[in-house]
Computed example of a mutant assay.
Amino acid sequence: MSVEKLDTILGFDFGIKRIGVAIGNSVLRTASPLAVISSIGNDARFGEIAALIQQWEPTLFVVGLPSHPDGTAHDMTARCRKFANQLHGRFSLPVVLVDERYSSAVISAKRGEVIDDRAASIILQQYFDEYVPSN
């Protein structure tokens, strides 16, 4: 019986005000909401991300990439790409961009409820479903 390597993966739903974070692993192929980063300023945000990395020791990041319904880029598309590049540059881990066009539509939230961590979970689950082979 062979034992597979367990890779922990962090998923991100990047936003201007908040960043949702989810966690999952390559063996179970399931994602769970982990945290919402609401800090102001890049240094504080990346400080919180660094703490999560130290705690969970991921081997990969997954970042949701938004676009218009027809797939064309918009302002947030460029911002998410920049965030993904910063993650890679600061933490030297690979980053996979995943189409997030319909992830927010899956979540029905009450007015004012913070849902960013659940959106990150949907993005990460989409990565597992589309890119990680099942055994």
Rank of each mutant, 00 (worst) to 15 (best):
residue 3 V to W: 14
residue 6 L to K: 15
residue 7 D to R: 09
residue 8 T to I: 15
residue 9 I to D: 06
residue 10 L to G: 02
residue 11 G to P: 11
residue 12 F to T: 05
residue 13 D to N: 11
residue 14 F to G: 09
residue 15 G to K: 10
residue 17 K to Y: 13
residue 17 K to E: 14
residue 20 G to P: 11
residue 20 G to L: 01
residue 20 G to R: 08
residue 22 A to E: 03
residue 23 I to S: 10
residue 25 N to P: 09
residue 25 N to H: 11
residue 26 S to T: 10
residue 27 V to M: 05
residue 27 V to A: 05
residue 28 L to Y: 13
residue 28 L to F: 13
residue 29 R to G: 01
residue 29 R to L: 09
residue 30 T to V: 15
residue 30 T to M: 15
residue 30 T to R: 14
residue 30 T to Y: 12
residue 31 A to F: 06
residue 34 L to R: 10
residue 36 V to T: 15
residue 36 V to S: 12
residue 36 V to R: 10
residue 36 V to C: 13
residue 37 I to S: 06
residue 40 I to E: 15
residue 40 I to Y: 11
residue 40 I to T: 15
residue 41 G to D: 11
residue 42 N to S: 15
residue 42 N to G: 15
residue 42 N to P: 13
residue 44 A to V: 07
residue 46 F to K: 03
residue 46 F to L: 01
residue 47 G to S: 03
residue 48 E to W: 00
residue 55 Q to D: 10
residue 56 W to V: 06
residue 57 E to Y: 01
residue 58 P to R: 06
residue 60 L to N: 06
residue 60 L to A: 06
residue 61 F to K: 07
residue 61 F to S: 08
residue 62 V to G: 01
residue 64 G to W: 05
residue 67 S to N: 04
residue 68 H to A: 10
residue 69 P to H: 04
residue 69 P to I: 07
residue 69 P to F: 09
residue 71 G to I: 09
residue 73 A to W: 09
residue 74 H to V: 03
residue 74 H to G: 13
residue 74 H to W: 12
residue 75 D to I: 11
residue 76 M to P: 01
residue 77 T to K: 04
residue 77 T to N: 05
residue 78 A to Y: 14
residue 78 A to K: 14
residue 78 A to T: 13
residue 79 R to L: 15
residue 80 C to Q: 00
residue 84 A to R: 07
residue 85 N to G: 14
residue 86 Q to H: 01
residue 90 R to F: 14
residue 90 R to Q: 13
residue 91 F to G: 00
residue 91 F to T: 02
residue 94 P to K: 04
residue 95 V to I: 05
residue 95 V to A: 05
residue 95 V to M: 08
residue 96 V to R: 08
residue 98 V to W: 06
residue 99 D to F: 10
residue 100 E to Y: 05
residue 101 R to N: 06
residue 101 R to Y: 04
residue 103 S to P: 09
residue 106 V to K: 10
residue 106 V to M: 10
residue 107 I to A: 04
residue 108 S to A: 09
residue 109 A to Q: 09
residue 110 K to T: 12
residue 113 E to Y: 00
residue 114 V to T: 05
residue 114 V to G: 05
residue 115 I to A: 01
residue 117 D to Y: 00
residue 118 R to P: 03
residue 121 S to T: 01
residue 121 S to Q: 10
residue 123 I to Y: 07
residue 124 L to N: 07
residue 124 L to G: 00
residue 125 Q to C: 10
residue 125 Q to N: 01
residue 126 Q to A: 05
residue 127 Y to V: 03
residue 128 F to K: 00
residue 129 D to P: 00
residue 129 D to I: 02
residue 130 E to H: 10
residue 130 E to W: 11
residue 132 V to C: 01
residue 132 V to P: 03
residue 132 V to Q: 07
residue 134 S to Y: 10
residue 134 S to F: 08
residue 135 N to F: 14
